[in-house]
Design a protein around this nucleic acid. Structure first.
Lengths: 296, 296
DNA sequence: ACCTTATGATCAAATAATTCGATGGTGTTT
DNA sequence: AAACACCATCGAATTATTTGATCATAAGGT
């Protein structure tokens, strides 16, 4: 009467008994003897602490509890079969996991679209995806041994290969209500007087070139570009934004390009980076292809 | 090296090893010896046909495949624990299944509301629900050994108990565009000239009293009251409808009550019927209570 | 370096779990 | 009534699992 864990073998036997309709036929199908089937069933009943078959009449008949156990048991067996099947698929080139790190500056919609395509294919690979910013991307890539990163810039490493994708334009903007909107031919020193908005880069080494903070007195760190855009719209300060994400606001005038002498636009070619030594599995290759297609 | 089914014990061991961090500690926790743990792990690896741990370095480290197997294995173990737990709950009075058959003439929203309340409670009982019409309700109740039926009328059986609920009104209606809309003090013979709309009753014995077909020349059978209502609105014919389902259309005049001499309204008390001899389980009692509350 | 401790593999022996084969009782079919 | 199918049960045979001991290797501390 003690609580014992069920085991799959007895559930397998139960299922066979119900399918074939009798203990003896089940034994036959499972290449066992009838007494062995009897044994497994009574073991199951002991483990569960409940009758599974009603033996009062001639043929053993499933009890209501038994019926329910059968249903749940079959679910369990299916899951177990899935686990076993997984390994075969891994040996056929599908990798157990695939991790992708993407710079949040890139438009996420196409990435998500690609990921949806992949998951719709019911690939055995567990795909994980996260976004970081600037140096944070590479940091995460290295720290958690991700397989691919889609990044604007990275510290080159001979162990990595990179594929260059279509350029992404970045613009220095402010709200039209902001004092800077009216100013012209600004230099860096002038910008220092205002609040700069930037997305928090979780990497320690902020030693990245390119669109950098201007190093003014007040720099506000936001968590992502969506928040940053809102802050910009509210006129909190100025900052760089991917053109794609503010095209609409530039057109309707809510946001304005800052007339900065150092250049208010930059182009970045996103890079699709992966490790040279550890070749990607089938899912990784597929993802790489699809990303190139979408961003290429 | 043959394909073998996984078994839960080795997955349990795998999980313990990962949780404790070493074979020996896992052995300790599981009250086994370290060599036994070794055995189970290597058995698992054989069953799967893949390495689960990487033994090349000092401490055994999960391989990527192993990690994935662990994740899936834990899901499996949880499911198994659930199956074991089910039986305990059944022995505490929860029944394995509960089936309810409802007459489609009754408003389904309150029934569904009650069912949602019950499923939200995460009751172990599997609840099934279906709707039929008139005699079909009882037929299904008997045929598939349902536990409860909510019906307008039934052939009394000493083995059943019934609780009477709040009355439901049924009205004989037509579209305002229909010729019958203008006629007054109609008798049965006059009605025979028009198309009668009725919901198909799947029971063979149509020997039910009350709102019956009028036995005219053309009787159209619809599959349910929603369809019937649409047919009525289109002016296809006349027919009985539960007041609740056409209250709105009567008010705005789209549908009109037929001035029938035999009476254009009937009241039915829905009955909540269950078997006397087989007492309901906890879920059944709960459902009965809730239905009484909602329909009482 | 040296000693100590922890990790995990492996082996033969012991133990436990499962299967087999045979037997028997009971209900069905013909 | 005879033949058959269903299932329980028992001891023996067979497998699976655990144990306890021993070994090689790596980590940690002095």
């Amino acid at each position: 009467m003690v609580f014992m864990a069920v085991d799959l073998e007895s559930l397998r036997v139960l299922s066979a008994v119900v399918e074939t309709g009798s203990f003896a036929k089940a034994a036959d199908r499972l290449h066992k003897t009838q007494s062995s089937v009897s044994y497994q069933i009574s073991k199951l009943e002991q483990q569960l602490g409940a009758q599974v078959f009603d033996r009062s009449s001639y043929r053993a008949k499933l009890t209501p509890v038994g019926l329910r156990i059968l249903e749940e048991g079959r679910r369990l067996l299916q899951q177990a079969a899935y686990v076993a099947r997984l390994v075969d698929q891994f040996s056929e080139g599908w990798e157990p996991k695939l991790e992708l790190v993407v710079d949040g500056m890139l438009p996420t919609a196409p990435v998500l679209g690609v990921l949806k395509e992949m998951t719709d294919l019911a690939i055995p690979t567990r795909i994980q995806f996260c976004t970081e910013f600037l140096g944070g991307v590479q940091q995460r890539f290295e720290q958690q041994q991700a397989d691919l990163m889609l990044v604007l810039d990275y510290q080159t490493d001979p162990a990595y290969s990179a594929i260059s994708l279509q350029a992404l334009e970045v613009v220095l903007v402010v709200s039209r209500e902001h004092p800077l909107a009216a100013r012209q031919a600004l230099d860096t020193r002038e910008l220092h007087a205002f609040v700069e908005l930037t997305v928090h880069d979780s990497s320690y080494s902020s030693a990245y070139g390119g669109l950098q903070t201007f190093g003014g007195e007040r720099v506000f760190y936001l968590s992502d570009f969506r928040t940053k855009k809102e802050a910009l719209l509210q006129g909190l300060g100025f900052g760089w934004m991917p053109l794609e994400q503010i095209r609409h606001e530039l057109l309707n005038g809510q946001l304005q390009e800052v007339d900065y002498q150092g250049g208010s636009r930059f182009s970045y070619s996103p890079l699709l980076v992966f490790r040279k030594n550890e070749p990607l599995g089938r899912a990784g290759e597929m993802l790489k292809e699809k990303l190139q297609q979408v961003f290429g």
